[in-house]
Amino acid sequence: MRVTGIVACEYTELPAALTGTLAAAGLDPVRVYDDVVAAIAEDLPGDDVTSWATIPATQVQTAEFEARGPGVVAGLAIAEMVFRYVLGDVQVDRVPDGTVVDRGDIVLRVTGPTALLLTAERTALNYACHLSGVASATAAWVAALKGTGARVRDTRKTLPGFRDLHKYAVRCGGGNNHRHSLSDMGLVKDNHVLAAGGVVPAYHLVREHYPDVEVQVEVESLDELREALDAGIGQILLDNMGPELLREAVAITAGRAELEASGGLSLEVARAVAETGVDYLAVGALTHSAPVLDLAMELRAVGEA
């Protein structure tokens, strides 16, 4: 007998512990479920022709996700949802997202029909490897800044449709989230300044039209910084300034505003930038350039040690 389809369990059939974990993490479990369904549909528009033809439907094995290097895991709850959608009511054990792991650690274990484990494998790994990569990259920045008082913060440089997940992975790595969308807060950048005729005029226009929304402004020089401070602006982004200029900016500000360094940042210079006294480092690379954490799925016969 061969496999003829996936279980395709409904959202209401998922364990409350799983959906509750996602909700507690700041994710919408219904949206995550819908994304998982779409991801499986993308990978499985028909049959899994290799697995379902070669593996009997009665064969059951245990699949383990093994870390092939050190890092911080994220997205394992989503990987669990993938397996549950494809296989139905199965036993899934996993370490919590945000766990620091080393090479050889088993981070997820699931037992079920072998063919369906293989059907779910790539989608589950895509989520877990990518999001664990974001969490691991973030953790490296957090470690580099330890003891300085500065914090690393993400940006909106995320893959479309992945913003919630990317920002969740940043949190798993110990980082901080900046605004989630264009509607959350105002961020006056160079093109807004050009259109409005200056940093301060642009700031006042945003405050006039959206008085209840926080506003941050980007400045490119110490003169613009002074203008922003004189206008009482409390959140200022220092664009493409080296450590020496940043140190001057911190001294000029003297605690009157929160300062965020942005542009040209790398792990190699992270600590030097943080030690200037800025409050945040804005790092788009956390989400747009993080390498995956290498996780591999290994199959074991049920009961195998």
Rank of each mutant, 00 (worst) to 15 (best):
G198Y: 15
A23V: 01
A228L: 10
A8P: 03
L286P: 11
T287V: 08
V7T: 09
V92G: 00
E248D: 15
Q91K: 07
E66R: 14
R94Q: 09
I6G: 03
L245I: 13
I106M: 11
V32Y: 01
P15Y: 00
W52G: 02
G46R: 11
A257Y: 01
S289T: 11
Q59S: 09
A25R: 13
P201K: 07
A53D: 12
A282P: 04
A144I: 13
G186K: 14
E80N: 10
D105T: 09
G303S: 03
A143P: 01
A282V: 14
A150S: 14
P15G: 02
L18I: 02
L87P: 00
R226G: 01
G284L: 08
Y210S: 13
A25P: 04
T155G: 04
L22W: 08
A67I: 02
A24Y: 00
D102S: 06
V273I: 14
R151Y: 08
P211F: 04
A25Y: 05
V86S: 04
S289P: 10
V292W: 06
A63T: 07
L299H: 08
G197W: 14
H180M: 12
T155A: 07
D97Y: 01
E268F: 07
W141L: 05
D43H: 07
E80V: 03
V110C: 15
A285I: 06
F162M: 12
R84W: 03
G234E: 14
A150G: 14
A254T: 03
D105Q: 05
H130W: 11
A140L: 12
A290S: 15
R300K: 12
V170M: 05
A140R: 15
T62A: 13
S262M: 06
V219G: 14
T62S: 09
T155K: 03
T21V: 04
P15W: 05
L205V: 07
V30P: 00
A24M: 02
K167Q: 13
T4R: 12
